[in-house]
Design a protein around this nucleic acid. Sequence first.
DNA 1: CTGATTGCAAATGCTTTGCACGCCA
DNA 2: TGGCGTGCAAAGCATTTGCAATCAG
Lengths: 164, 164
Amino acid sequence: MNEEIIERFNEFVKRKGLRRTSQRDSLVSMIFAKDEHFTSEELYEKIRRSDADVSRATVYRTISLLVDAGMLREIDLGGEEKTYDPNFLDKPSHNHLVCVDCRKVVEFEDKNIDTLGDCIARRLGFRTVQQEIHIEAACQTLRDKGMCPELLSRRLSGKRIKKR
Amino acid sequence: MNEEIIERFNEFVKRKGLRRTSQRDSLVSMIFAKDEHFTSEELYEKIRRSDADVSRATVYRTISLLVDAGMLREIDLGGEEKTYDPNFLDKPSHNHLVCVDCRKVVEFEDKNIDTLGDCIARRLGFRTVQQEIHIEAACQTLRDKGMCPELLSRRLSGKRIKKR
DNA sequence: CTGATTGCAAATGCTTTGCACGCCA
DNA sequence: TGGCGTGCAAAGCATTTGCAATCAG
């Protein structure tokens, strides 16, 4: 299925009169290997750790291409750096719930939200093109212990965490 | 009612052991005079055009204070610069619909969305702290004429518009 | 008086770009 | 061979910060 995605990207590239390169292949296959969100810097670090040889500039340029191709979407999770979401191919209309404490993200789909959003837009004289609900919430552990499981364990291990 | 808001800010400032200054007063009263969204730069331009004398650094610092005070909220409308919304005091849980063509923003409140979001969060094991639905949509004119009213008239008058 | 606040300019940090060389088609 | 793509370093840009002077309380 990763093959399928790379193929899709190659068609986009061909259609645009652009070229297939090893750097683009490495990046695309790394991005869609997991369904994780990432920032440009995170992707750059990850690609550097692999055997592929890709510069930071190419990372930015390729992300931009993927966004144009509609294969990647910029999302707002509240951080300072732009975050990208590779999961819109599988789930074209999914939403995000973010833990107010550890900033972990849960993705979910919901037909009711989609319907409701459409109705609201119509009432206002519009037709929905795209919509998303963003929820900031507290998990059980946070409510009970005042801190998320993940943060609790990191605190014990003395790791640093960057919060927004 | 603007007085009330300035008063609220002054109390926040006092409580924090900070000081009331003419710059802060000017900014706060300008921000809450209208219910419009704005970027730091837009606010800076506007304050410069007025008689008040405020530097760009102070604009940034004051916005930051207002956000801490919970009187202003950073929202994501898709632009490159951060956008601020002064309307959460009046409407603590409102949403945004953005025109895909002219980027004009319509704010709306909806109890059903709030309820639905709460349910979804509970189902996932969370308790909602804050939520918002963001809708990108097309208005009637855009659908009929292929371009928004506002953009149509600007095109006729030859003005420039910055689109995302 | 004392310490918060301001303006200015310099510094940051993410992202984009100009350019020369290399590589795909 | 023609040009697109890449890496590098420099440039851009919005935002933040250090510092000396100023001002609020």
